[in-house]
Design a protein around this nucleic acid. Structure first.
Lengths: 119, 119
DNA sequence: TGACTATATTCTCATATAGGAATATGATCG
DNA sequence: CGATCATATTCCTATATGAGAATATAGTCA
């Protein structure tokens, strides 16, 4: 089979750096016109529009039109699945006790940490 | 330019469903042989090995060898960047007050939520 | 309707995978 | 060393973009 769709779910949508930038730019909750994003990201209008399309499709942003302008707004709740998923691993770095325990355990078991792959 | 590297950072690494499955399977902190993952995911040995290679490259898993077997173990801390990033938006769905406030605000500002794009 | 503004979409290209199949590599044992 | 087990890597293919250029759409106003 070929490569999986990159724009089919939230995890894939936020995998693209540019799209994370857009999300961050909209983090304050304000609605912004596409043009503002184009300036801010110094990316082409076409590129920005396409990224917004992906975010829109996944529901991470919503659109409102004001005259010829399209105002995009973040829909933060759509990021919840990602938060829920990764939250599961939070304990491994947030609790002092666990951290110490884990370190001791690692010292006993692991011998090497590989980082191969040609690159 | 062409598509960005999908396997170059943590966000991209977890964008692939199969890889998230692997991470979940290793969530208990135990080291597992590749064969176990192959059985569990009912995927080909080659596919699993390649996914592990990506996770390894990003540092999400570490490897230890035991005879001919390669034991993989989750390195949860590498997921912290993702948690930190998404945590920023947590407030939007976790606090009751904010939720109500946001709803009211939306009712006043937004007129429509588009979900276009052919697909 | 025609001109202008702001975006979205289409075309085209170069590149990056996911997988499966086949093969190479490494470790262990006799 | 040769056989076997467990994985990693290489080859090859179908597909999915990301980006820029050009074009199509939509809204507004005269």
């Amino acid at each position: 089979m070929a490569r999986a769709r990159t724009t089919s779910d939230v995890f894939n949508a936020i995998a693209e750096p540019r799209r994370r930038e857009i999300i961050e730019f909209l983090a304050d909750g304000e609605s912004r016109a596409v043009g503002e994003l184009v300036d801010r990201l110094s990316a082409s209008q076409s590129a920005v529009s396409k990224h917004l399309g992906v975010l829109r499709k996944v529901g991470i942003v919503s659109v409102t039109t004001s005259g010829p302008m399209h105002l995009y707004r973040l829909e933060p709740k759509q990021l919840k699945p990602v938060h829920d998923w990764v939250k599961r691993y939070e304990q491994f770095w947030s609790h002092q006790i666990d951290r110490i325990k884990e370190r001791a355990e690692r010292k006993a078991h692991t011998r090497s940490t590989t980082q191969s792959k040609k690159e």
